[in-house]
Amino acid sequence: MNFMTTTMFAPRIWGFDPSTPEVRIARQSGWRMADILWEYLMEQANVAWTQDDSARAAWGFRRAAWAARLFFAKDDLRHATVMVNQGICAQARGQMTRAQRCFAKALVCWDAHSERALADIQIAPRARSSLFHLRMEARHRATYHANMQLRLSKISAEVRAAIAALADGNTAECRLFSRWRGEKPNVFDDTRKILGACLLIIDADGV
Rank of each mutant, 00 (worst) to 15 (best):
M1W: 03
F3D: 12
M4W: 12
M4R: 14
M4Y: 13
T7D: 11
P11W: 06
R12H: 12
G15V: 13
D17L: 09
E22G: 07
I25A: 04
G30V: 06
R32V: 00
M33C: 00
M33L: 07
A34V: 00
D35W: 02
I36T: 04
I36M: 11
I36W: 03
W38L: 15
E39C: 00
E39T: 01
M42L: 08
A45D: 00
A45L: 03
V47C: 01
V47D: 02
W49D: 12
W49G: 06
D52M: 04
D52V: 03
A55M: 04
R56F: 10
R56E: 11
A57I: 07
A58N: 09
A65N: 14
W66N: 12
F72D: 02
A73L: 01
K74S: 13
K74H: 08
D75R: 01
D75F: 02
D76R: 05
A80M: 03
T81Y: 01
V82C: 08
V84S: 05
N85A: 10
Q86T: 01
Q86K: 09
C89R: 09
Q91M: 14
Q91F: 13
Q91W: 14
A92E: 15
A92H: 15
A92N: 15
M96I: 06
T97P: 03
Q100M: 09
Q100F: 05
F103Q: 05
A104L: 06
L107H: 09
H113K: 02
E115A: 14
E115N: 09
R116D: 09
R116T: 12
A117T: 05
L118E: 12
D120R: 10
I121Y: 06
I121M: 05
I121C: 06
I123M: 03
A124N: 01
P125W: 04
R126A: 11
A127N: 10
S129F: 07
S129H: 08
L131Q: 15
F132T: 13
L134E: 15
L134C: 14
E137G: 01
H140V: 03
R141F: 09
A142Y: 08
A146P: 07
A146E: 13
N147D: 10
M148W: 07
M148N: 07
L150M: 01
L150P: 00
A157N: 11
A157L: 12
E158Y: 00
R160K: 08
A161G: 09
I163Q: 07
A164Y: 13
E173G: 05
R175L: 13
F177P: 05
S178I: 02
S178A: 02
R181Q: 06
G182K: 05
V187P: 02
D189L: 04
D190K: 05
K193N: 14
C198G: 12
L199D: 10
L200H: 05
L200P: 10
L200W: 04
A204W: 01
V207I: 04
